[in-house]
Amino acid sequence: MSARSNFGRAFVYGDDITTDALAPGAYMKKPVEEMASHCLEAIDPNFAKAVRAGDVVVGGENFGMGSSREQAAIALRQLGVNAVVAKSFAGLFFRNAVNVGLAPLVCAEADRIRPGDELSVEPVVGRIENLTTGEIYTCEPIPPHLLDMIRDGGLLPHLEKKLRKTAR
């Protein structure tokens, strides 16, 4: 779950990473496993094969630009990515990421992270330790009204919990 601390290697990309690259339209009608195997192939054909559970995707400005398709965030989750670190996010992607349990971390120092750096990420406190360089980065705090949702693992488990409470 995205609320947990996370340890993995950095996959670093630039500004304006699109939802078309993250979840290509041609595979949107396919099962999530198949769709995810094409994640980012337009800009890095090796990504889906190389990425392992716990790895972290790092972007520049406006990460997740474009479509409302939350499969862009789901594809990353499917591949084991629990956190994306970027200088900024497209607003729609940010909401989708939180909703599906992927932590979107806004970090002004995202550009200090190099491909392959080993990162330890604590989403809720917004702290990233670069184990390769020894640097510590501070992320913008997750808005307080979203913390419960992040802790619950996304909007659906959050709603499930709330509905159970109401039913009681």
């Binding site: 409302s68 398709r69 939350e70 965030a73 729609l92 909401r95 989708n96 909703n99 599906v100 996304g154 909007l155 659906l156 709603l159």
Partner: peptide, 10 residues
């Protein structure tokens, strides 16, 4: 404004 499917379910 646009939302994703999970948000729409909400």
């Amino acid at each position: 404004f646009g939302v994703g499917a999970t948000e729409m379910a909400g």
